[in-house]
Design a protein around this nucleic acid. Structure first.
Length: 269
DNA sequence: CGGACAACCTGGTTGC
DNA sequence: TGCAACCAGGTTGTCC
């Protein structure tokens, strides 16, 4: 569920709680939440290590450890919640707990799709990810290069984490609406003007969503359990049948590359 | 390479 | 009310 703005909000909240702290103990309640290495080795790799930094890369949370990196991907319903020691919150969906010197970090996940991993080098493990959309590494030129000769729908291009990292279904739809581009358009048919508009729209949408601390449709929460406020700022996602805020036409919904896609039939071409 | 689809999971919503 | 079908923000792997 969490896309770039949600993960960014989580990392900002978690950073002040965990950086400089030592992982005293790791509790694994759902072993399949551990992607690699096997759960026992994962626990052994983490216990006793100090967390030296916390970053986001695409939709991944990256914990910089003294030896290796901790990677967390929350997929659809994963949450990272900070619980004070001894506090007994709802632990029905608790999958993995990191017990720090003075706090507990809970990875809770209804659908059990989220994953944690310990890797020797996070940069290497995430090398296939494309540039960060809000960094200088993401340029119109690299978007154009990715679009060239590709007949896939432009929406599929935005969702391809190798092209640009961190965009999911919500912000792909929002950016395409802002740019006035229909989601089914073959990527290679976009003009340089359209590519420029899309590039700008992607960055603008993500920045706005970060300012609003992410979008909560149902499950997303920040590390304190608080919902994001960006839902009411969405222009197309989840608004099928409602009027387009730009032209008044009815927002439509169709399936593109297996994902529900929301768009305005009148002002997206 | 691209596209379709299943798998991984549970729970909320919808329709009969 | 009961129950089955369907749907969901993501990623990965398989098959054609």
């Amino acid at each position: 569920m969490p896309e770039l703005p949600e993960v960014e909000t989580i990392v900002r909240g978690l950073r002040e709680v965990v950086v400089g702290k030592r992982i005293e103990r790791v509790e694994v309640y759902w072993p399949r939440s551990i992607a690699e290495p096997d759960p026992a080795e994962f626990v052994a790799r983490l216990e006793g290590q100090r967390i030296q930094g916390l970053d986001r890369r695409g939709k991944y949370v990256v914990g910089r450890l003294e030896h290796g990196d901790l990677l967390i991907h929350l997929r659809m319903t994963g949450q990272l919640l900070v619980a004070a020691r001894g506090l007994d919150d709802d632990r029905r969906y608790l999958r993995v707990a990191l017990v720090l010197d003075d706090a507990r970090v809970h990875m809770c996940d209804v659908r059990k799709l989220g994953r944690l991993a310990w890797v020797p080098d996070g940069e290497v493990a995430l090398a296939s990810l494309g540039p960060e959309p809000l960094s200088a590494g993401f340029t119109v030129e690299c978007l154009a290069a990715a679009a060239a000769r590709r007949r896939v729908p432009v929406k599929a291009l935005l969702l391809d984490q190798r092209v640009v990292a961190g965009i999911g279904n919500i912000y792909a739809d929002e950016a395409l609406h802002t740019a006035g581009i229909a989601p089914w358009r073959a990527a290679c048919t976009l003009s340089s003007t359209e590519l420029g508009a899309l590039w700008g729209a992607v960055r603008q949408e993500l920045e706005r969503a970060i300012e609003n601390r992410g979008t909560t449709l149902r499950d997303y929460r920040d590390v304190t359990g608080r919902a994001g406020e960006h839902r009411e700022a969405l222009r197309v996602y989840g608004r099928a049948g409602e009027p387009c805020l730009r032209c008044g036409a009815q927002i439509a919904r169709m399936v593109i590359c297996g994902r529900s896609s929301h768009y305005c039939p009148a002002c997206q071409h």
